[in-house]
């Protein structure tokens, strides 16, 4: 009996350790980024980092202004959101409010497949299919451009918006829809004035999740967006995102301990902060707007 109790206790401690790995991971991420970032800022002033408008750590004269990379990241994110949010939400509305059982049976797997396709495949699709189409439509499009990558990132994040929003709309009680129909609402009015507002917090959270994914998306932009850090809003030009830069440096052979190799940790830190911010916003939204149906 005592022996059994002992085993139980020991096992409990070991399992606690396993569960603690998640906390350790977070700490390790912060410290591993922080270590090199601190070394980086010993050589580059933090003011230059956030105000210089050029990012050329691999070329002489070196400039360490992160703004062009942030600009590139935001350009991709904005473009992707323009696709994923409306199409994702529309698909969610269709699935939750219009589709019959048979249609759902076709549509759900389509979304699941889209969600399961690795991002490298979307990168290939951007470069090999989307870019040539864009070039035919608008001839001055660069072979590497923000638009093509944005479209691919947008497509990749459609399923996220669609399935989370659909779940949220399905959770809206039918009684509310009937209440609205019973005083003469059209379907459009029921969807836009009752269903979507009732599910708003989760719908917004799904948008934030898609945005956060777009910020951190790497392979699509590494393949299709180019490697020219630039402060531009023109989606037809070649640009570079934070993630794209990190990959570029990692594929080359930059000597360890050099300032060039430290730049990726400083850039990574900025990326981590941006996604962390998104996570926090999403949590706040869910908390603030949480509605409980009885």
């Amino acid at each position: 009996m005592n022996y059994n109790k002992l085993v139980d206790n020991v096992i409990k401690r070991i399992l606690l350790l396993f569960a603690a790995i998640s906390v350790i991971t977070t700490i390790a991420i912060v410290f591993s980024l922080l270590g090199e970032t601190v070394s980086f800022f010993k050589e580059v002033s933090i003011v230059e980092f956030f105000t210089d408008t050029r990012w050329t750590p691999l070329l002489e004269p070196k400039h360490f202004g992160i703004l062009p990379l942030i600009c590139g990241t935001l350009l991709i994110t904005a473009g992707a959101s323009l696709i994923s949010i409306p199409i994702g939400l529309a698909s969610a509305v269709f699935l939750s409010e219009y589709a019959g059982n048979r249609t759902r049976k076709i549509l759900k797997p389509v979304l699941e497949i889209l969600a399961g396709i690795p991002t490298i495949v979307y990168g290939y699709f951007a470069l090999v299919t989307i870019t040539p189409i864009l070039q035919r439509l608008i001839p001055q499009t660069n072979i590497f451009n923000a638009a093509s990558a944005s479209i691919a990132v947008g497509i990749m994040t459609i399923p996220m918006v669609a399935s989370l929003s659909e779940d949220a709309m399905k959770a809206v009680p039918n009684a509310l829809r009937h209440g609205a129909f019973a005083i003469g609402s059209t379907k459009f009015e029921v969807v836009t004035k009752i269903v979507i507002p009732s599910a708003l917090s989760s719908i917004l959270a799904s948008f934030i999740l898609a945005i956060s994914r777009a910020i951190g998306e790497t392979m699509i932009v590494a393949l299709a967006a180019g490697s020219t850090p630039k402060l531009t809003l023109n989606p037809l030009e070649s640009i570079q995102t934070i993630t794209g830069y990190i990959v570029q440096v990692s594929m080359g052979d930059t000597p360890r301990g050099s300032i060039e190799s430290r730049t990726i940790f400083a850039a990574g830190m900025v990326l981590f902060m941006m996604t962390l911010l998104m996570n926090i916003i999403s949590m706040l939204i869910v908390k603030k707007f949480r509605r409980v149906y009885d």
């Binding site: 009684a175 509310l176 009937h178 209440g179 019973a182 003469g184 507002p197 149906y293």
Partner: peptide, 15 residues
């Protein structure tokens, strides 16, 4: 339905 309105068994106020 505008002319013939309906109230349900369980109250269903909109949120």
């Amino acid at each position: 339905r505008k002319r013939v309105g309906m109230v349900f068994q369980k109250p269903n106020p909109f949120p």
